[in-house]
């Protein structure tokens, strides 16, 4: 529901700002756009796939959920530099760094019906579930382990014949226009 509210919010604020700045025609376009959105809102249940964020096993994440949605790439990028290049692996209180991908996976790993962890080639993998929806390709798991260490299907000396990470490319998700309508307002409201 918050997703739909968000659409309205960003469009109406845009409308207010633009009223006294833009030529009439542009305002008219914006008005039309806002009507379309209202219509889309009514038919939200028809708008294609919805994200189902899987539950995690940990107690609480390093940041509140909405902040994690926005800032997790920055955390990961920031802390990977600290850890790899400088050798800083912990916070001063001895806890893991916020951007520890290992810790992300430990809490957020998802199991399938047979109680095995799902891998990165599976739509139910925590990272994939959102990233596929948002059509944002990540290459973390070309190198990083996609399930917790020592988990049941870890066998270092043999590989998985059918796992093909390269198939995870933009364009292969079959995103619809509606998907983009769902995603775009959220994306634009995040940027500084």
């Amino acid at each position: 529901m918050w997703l739909q509210l968000n659409i309205n919010f960003s469009f109406s604020s845009l409308l207010k700002e633009s009223m006294h700045k833009l030529p009439l025609s542009v305002v008219g376009l914006a008005l039309m756009a806002s009507f379309t959105t209202v219509n889309a809102e009514v038919e939200q249940h028809d708008l294609g796939p919805r994200i189902e964020i899987p539950e995690s096993s940990g107690n609480s994440c390093v940041l509140p959920e909405d902040e994690m949605r926005r800032r997790h790439p920055d955390l990961l990028k920031h802390d990977r530099i600290l850890t790899l290049r400088e050798g800083i692996r912990e916070k001063t209180d001895g806890h893991n760094l916020d951007g520890s991908l290992k810790q992300c996976i430990n809490c957020h790993a998802i199991k399938d019906d047979n109680n095995n962890y799902v891998r990165i080639d599976n739509d139910r993998h925590f990272c994939v579930s959102c990233h596929k929806y948002a059509a944002v390709t990540i290459d973390c798991f070309q190198c990083h382990r996609d399930i917790p260490e020592g988990s049941s299907n870890f066998h270092a000396l043999s590989g998985h014949k059918n796992t093909d990470f390269t198939s995870i490319t933009p364009g292969s998700y079959g995103l619809t226009v509606q998907d983009m309508a769902n995603i775009a307002p959220e994306v634009s409201s995040d940027d500084k």
Partner: peptide, 16 residues
């Protein structure tokens, strides 16, 4: 080639 099942402590992958 594409690798899977890396060790958590040694991330390693194709093209590097």
């Amino acid at each position: 080639e594409t690798l899977t099942d890396q060790s958590t402590t040694t991330p390693r992958g194709k093209g590097c």
